[in-house]
Design a protein around this nucleic acid. Structure first.
Ligand SMILES: [Zn+2]
Ligand SMILES: [Zn+2]
Ligand SMILES: [Zn+2]
Ligand SMILES: [Zn+2]
Lengths: 411, 411
DNA sequence: CGCCGTTCACGGTGTTCA
DNA sequence: TGAACACCGTGAACGGCG
């Protein structure tokens, strides 16, 4: 009857120092300390020298005072060097584990990623107003002016635009499909028709900027919400003020367009912003030129056709915001990490939640849209500055702030 | 029930002087002061003598008054001499740490270095206008004069230069390749052909300086931007005004050339400055002589062939600016530190970001270009002064300021 | 569950500089 | 001189694998 067995349940002692040992390490019963010490000693492979008489008695308390004697004791009691993994073995193990992690990470969303999406959705819902109910007090838009719309040049009746004095852009919605089809086909057809507008300088004066005050108010309204969205993100707030400004300057236009895309109706080519419906001609009437509007219009169609879910839209907004290569960013590496994290989250989300064969193309297509938007951001700034030049004091200070290159600001 | 335990959570007192102790040092619980004192006492290894009765009571307040008794107390309470690292151990440690630092520094960019590059890029982008869109209001350039171009002497038809009154230097771009090949081959072939221009004094008068007003305007425009670039750098602003001026006087020519090199087309040997394209003959027509233009032309080819990235160009500009051995610099040591820091940053950047076998030669080649440029700076000043002598009041005051030797200025 | 490697806060060296 | 700092060995806790 061996009732005698425990005495301390597991009273085994380290063969090197006498400390409590929980198991065998490198072929000897040792404590955690001696285990780590032996591995490090092997990997360092440097000669150790005893400052005393090479006869140190190793105990739990003095084991740190003489590495040489401790190592000798390790070998004496039978710890085996060959049981320490070699450098290549370690490398193999590491890469194998990394691979596995990568696979897991691209197969299922981590709880952190799900939490991130939740935060983004929450931030988005509290700062985006899809029916534009808070958009009021704006200056009215005069749609009686029929712009020389470059988008209807290739259409059959370019000068037959009816006036649309109401809040709904009836012109676009009436024969909008024709116009869209014609212009949209034109965009993707050839480069010859894509820039048939080669008299910019003179034509600019024909534009009466009749929609500029309204578009300015709308844009200002949108920018405020974009800033609120960004500021309600934990990661964003943790950046320096300077970097926050740099990121906002770079991303505001893009995020605005992403948000407009959520209310874009690709059938009618209209943006259905609650009680007001906009068409591309409103942008023309605000003074923007085809060099921006053509690719922008195309982008909205391309992006809308992806039929993104809200989670995807909001991840795209965040990816745009955390673009590391905006002018003036200081903490490039951190922002790059966040950006990659968001991109991986989007990719994984698509892989997990989407079905169908086109899901593998969705992520690359989104990335392509980013490239498009990037060039448009620059062109937008240019055109805003041009408009500001011709029509001073119409564009709001907030818009100028976004467009300006000055590093200092106070959003 | 040992409720008596904390008293202040960590109220441990130095065993030597009673001051607050935060841990064990040399085998005894001591304060930071006694720790340092004991090490220094061991390393000095000189006998200490008590001026009193060898019975001093060491306290926190009087511990500095008797070294001998303090040291004796240290030994008495158990501080161990053998736990102070010996001189050789210290030396080994020092060299090991230095080695490691050197390795790390030459292997990966520190965050500070990355930030520096960001600052330089930002400063560059806001002060360099690669398409020369802000260059306007300049005096026109008369290219109808066909200079006795030394660069086409070895070519077959030296006097057949067509006129090029337009903004594009058609002569160089038309049969530019021939001209370039001939002249460039001439440079690198032998010393006999490299200075076939041995009638300087007389020939100078043949030159009509037809391009001088334009080149003056261009140079003035460039200098202003170089000054803006420098002034937007934190490190530069922190220097004294005198040193800022000394550095600018020394570096302006070099930085200008580096910037011109970014738009240099080595295929056509033209500088493509936005709407205007320049060739080397324009410099001839401005009155510059081969003693400057030959090595300058060669430099532009050499430098361009390195195919530098923007980050590298901007680091080179900064290295040129922070050259410690410019005439008149006061704070030589600080500027030297900045210069070495920038050089190491460039070297590390190349090691990290470049690939291919030629990356190891890139940095030395850049350094060689600096040597070349240094001699050209002096020659440039000389020739500007010569031209000023012949054609007074054409060269702008700003250029004269850069070239002058007077120590006082106000950029 | 046993035994690998990994991680990271902690403790105790030397170093710096006001 | 000593407070603050940089550096590195240590070992308890942990994750992965068989
Ligand atoms: Zn042990
Ligand atoms: Zn020993
Ligand atoms: Zn003390
Ligand atoms: Zn004494």
């Amino acid at each position: 009857m061996p009732y005698e067995e425990d005495e301390d349940e597991e009273p085994r002692a380290c063969a090197v120092c006498g400390d409590q040992a929980k198991g065998y390490h490198f072929n000897a019963l040792t404590c955690e300390g001696c285990k780590g010490f032996f591995r490090r000693a092997i990997k360092r492979s440097t000669q150790l020298r005893c400052p005393y008489m090479k006869k140190c008695i190793i105990t739990k308390n003095n084991r740190r005072s003489c590495q040489a004697c401790r190592f000798r004791k390790c070998q004496d009691i039978g710890m085996r060097k060959d049981m320490v993994m070699s450098e290549e073995e370690v490398m193999k193990r590491r890469t194998r584990i990394k691979q596995k992690k990568m696979y897991i990470a691209s197969t299922q969303l981590s709880s952190q990623q799900e939490q991130t999406i939740e935060e983004l959705l929450s931030a988005h819902h509290s700062t985006f107003d899809p029916v534009f109910s808070r958009f009021s007090g704006f200056r009215p838009m005069d749609r009686s002016v029929s712009p020389v719309s470059e988008y209807s040049q290739s259409a059959s009746e370019p000068f037959n635009e009816p006036t649309c004095p109401e809040n709904t852009c009836t012109s676009a919605s009436k024969h909008g499909s024709d116009l869209t089809a014609a212009s949209y086909a034109g965009f993707s057809s050839s480069s010859s028709s894509s820039c048939s507008f080669h008299h910019e300088e003179d034509e600019v004066k024909n534009c009466v900027f009749s929609a500029l005050p309204h578009v300015t108010d709308l844009t200002t309204y949108m920018i405020k919400d974009v800033i609120s969205f960004s500021k309600s993100l934990q990661e964003f707030r943790s950046l320096t003020i300077g970097d926050q400004i740099s990121l906002l300057k770079g991303a505001t236009f893009e995020i605005m367009q992403i948000r407009f895309n959520m209310v874009f109706n690709s059938e009618t080519s209209n943006w259905e912003c609650g009680h007001i419906t906009y068409c591309i001609d409103d942008a023309v009437r605000a003074g923007f030129q085809p060099l921006l509007l053509e690719p922008l219009f195309k982008l909205h169609h391309t992006l809308r056709k992806l039929d993104l879910l809200e989670e995807e839209y909001v991840l795209i907004q965040a990816m745009s915001l955390f673009s590391p290569d905006r002018p003036g960013v200081q903490n490039h590496s951190l922002i790059d990490k966040v950006h990659e994290y968001l991109a991986l989250t989007l990719k994984t989300w698509i892989d997990c939640k989407r079905t169908g064969p086109e899901k593998h193309l969705l992520f690359p297509k989104v990335i392509a849209c980013f490239t498009e938007m990037r060039t448009m951001t620059e062109e937008y700034s240019k055109q805003i500055l041009q408009i500001q030049d011709i029509q001073p004091d119409t564009i709001s200070p907030l818009i100028m702030e976004v467009v300006s290159k000055s590093p200092c600001s106070d959003f």
